[in-house]
């Protein structure tokens, strides 16, 4: 095998600072970095089938399965149940998808990608902002694929198109607050697997101990008590109100309070843990 040097002669390519690259420099470096890191996040999602499945096929499978499996038993008609279930599956998907950002950031740390970034003259928070931004885009994909599948199955928005966009905005806003829990755990846990384990331990009871799949008044009292304070319930209620009509103000207010609480507690914790580990 020929050596590398023989291939291309003198490696002028590496001559330090000999060439002026000023002409090729960008004007808003930090924005450019965030753009590049967001694109990286999306490329990674496209490359890893399970990451893409999380926001596309998995919610659709849940929707199809639950609608046609339980619809008749739950509400006597699959169409009625679909109308109830779709906002619930939306919430469930949002909660499940929050795991990804923590796992990805932890993977960056454990695999040494973070060290590479840190050896570069970029803002320390740029990789974090890039991860959050690409997460938002993932949630948009999730929202679109779930709603479109729902429409094909017969789901109808009974309010207005603006209310529907409001529901999507609320869901993404909620996930932007929730993602800091994931970032926090991602920065504390030893391995990506541990991040996933810890987060699902919290997310499972939140998802299933809510009115995402079943109406609250069918449950025993002690469970109702938990379900009623569960943020997943208020998000599901607010989303149902925005998509299918019904009360919005009260669940929305409750949901916004939860979001503010999550943000107030976990944003500082996450940023501190991030700065410590990254």
């Amino acid at each position: 095998m020929t050596t590398i040097i023989e291939k291309s002669g003198k490696p002028t390519a590496t001559t330090p600072r000999s060439t002026s690259v000023a002409a090729d420099q960008v004007r808003f470096p930090t924005l450019h970095h965030i753009f590049a890191l967001t694109k990286r996040g999306l490329l990674k999602t496209m490359r890893t089938p399970e990451a893409l499945i999380d926001v596309t096929i998995q919610p659709i499978i849940f929707l199809l399965l639950f609608t046609y499996l339980f619809g008749g038993a739950m509400m006597g008609s699959t169409a009625d149940y679909l109308q109830f279930l779709l906002p619930g599956i939306y919430v469930q998907s949002i909660l499940f998808s929050a795991v990804a950002i923590g796992v990805n950031l932890n993977q960056d740390v454990t695999k040494g990608v973070t060290d590479r970034f840190r050896s570069l003259p970029i803002s320390r928070s740029a990789p974090l902002i890039g991860a959050v931004t690409s997460d938002v885009l993932r949630y948009l994909v999730l929202s679109a694929s779930l709603l479109i599948t729902g429409f094909i199955m017969g789901f109808r928005v009974e309010t207005s198109i603006w209310a529907m966009f409001g529901a999507v905005a609320l869901a993404i806003g909620f996930s932007l607050c929730l993602c800091w829990v994931s970032v926090f755990v991602g920065m504390l846990a030893r391995s990506p697997g541990a991040v996933q384990g810890i987060l699902f331990l919290a997310i499972f009871p939140l998802t299933f101990g809510s009115n995402v799949f079943v109406q609250t008044d069918t449950m025993p009292g002690w469970l109702q008590a938990f379900v009623k304070v569960n943020p997943a319930t208020s998000l599901a209620d607010a989303t149902r109100g925005l998509l299918s009509g019904g009360p919005v103000a009260s669940p929305l207010l409750y949901c916004l309070l939860w979001m503010a609480g999550l943000l107030a507690v976990f944003f500082p914790l996450a940023v501190r843990a991030y700065r410590r580990r990254v």
Binding site: D24, V26, A36, R116
Partner: peptide, 23 residues
Amino acid sequence: ASVDEDLTGMENLILIGQLLNLR
């Protein structure tokens, strides 16, 4: 200090170039 395993060789190097303020 590692490259991103999910990205291609080209994508990795372009990303680093962009982070070094190259267009």
